[in-house]
Computed example of a mutant assay.
Amino acid sequence: MLIREATEADWPAVWPFFRRIVASGETYPYPLDLGEEEGRGWWLLPAPDRTVVAVDDEGGGAVLGSAKMNCNMSRAGNARHVASASFMVDPDHSGRGVGRALCEYVIAWARESGFRAIQFNAVVETNVRAVRLYESLGFRIVGTVPEGFRHPAHGLVGVHVMHLAL
């Protein structure tokens, strides 16, 4: 697997799984009917933020997943030393280590960029695989917003704020 900077040319490969994940309503607070152009604007971030794709470097270069990383708060404010990120793995390629590789990439990027911590603002508590992955990489749940997310199958569930000191 190769992780590289995403380009506009990658969006047609990202959009199908992005749309599928968002429309499921299980893990992202995005509008379920988010359109392609708006989704592109929310996901493909301009510098100094960054968006990457994980591609299958042995199987024809298929896009397996993507991550976007950015400053958690205002770039000009007193919280600019904390990074954040979001991840999407094509459900057809889950369980192959794509999420772990993307998360490890983000941690390395944040360290190299001089951030002192990473904060995930909204990890849905029923997204157990993601919570387990983040915890295995050293993130801690520092708080939970009770009933902060309307899950389509579980109703109102908590949203974790997760933190990793760098």
Rank of each mutant, 00 (worst) to 15 (best):
S24N: 05
E37T: 14
D56Y: 12
N127E: 12
L2M: 12
H93A: 13
G114I: 09
H163G: 00
V52T: 06
L2W: 09
A54I: 01
A9I: 03
G95A: 12
S66F: 06
T27M: 12
L102F: 03
C103G: 10
A130P: 07
D92P: 11
L137A: 04
E37K: 07
G97L: 04
A79K: 14
H154T: 00
P46I: 05
V131I: 05
R19Y: 10
G77F: 10
P12W: 13
A9F: 04
V82S: 14
T51Y: 02
C103N: 04
G97D: 02
A165V: 06
T7G: 15
V98I: 08
R80F: 12
A76H: 15
I141Q: 02
M69Y: 12
W15K: 05
D33P: 15
R150C: 06
W42F: 14
S86E: 09
E112N: 07
R100V: 02
H163M: 05
S84E: 00
A23F: 10
C103P: 00
R140D: 12
G99P: 02
P48L: 07
L32A: 13
N121F: 14
M1K: 03
W11Q: 01
G59L: 14
I3K: 01
T27R: 06
A23K: 07
Y28K: 00
S66A: 13
G95Y: 10
M1R: 07
L32R: 06
V145M: 13
R111D: 07
V145G: 00
S66C: 15
R100P: 03
L133D: 09
S66R: 04
E8S: 05
T144A: 07
A85E: 12
H163Q: 10
E147Q: 09
D33G: 07
E104G: 03
P16H: 12
A62S: 04
D92M: 05
V22D: 09
L137R: 06
T7Y: 10
V124T: 06
L45F: 14
G158P: 11
V106H: 00
P16S: 08
N121V: 06
A67H: 06
E36S: 11
R140E: 14
V142G: 00
P29M: 09
R75N: 14
R96L: 14
G39T: 05
V89D: 08
A62K: 15
R20S: 13
A9C: 04
G77Q: 11
A47Y: 06
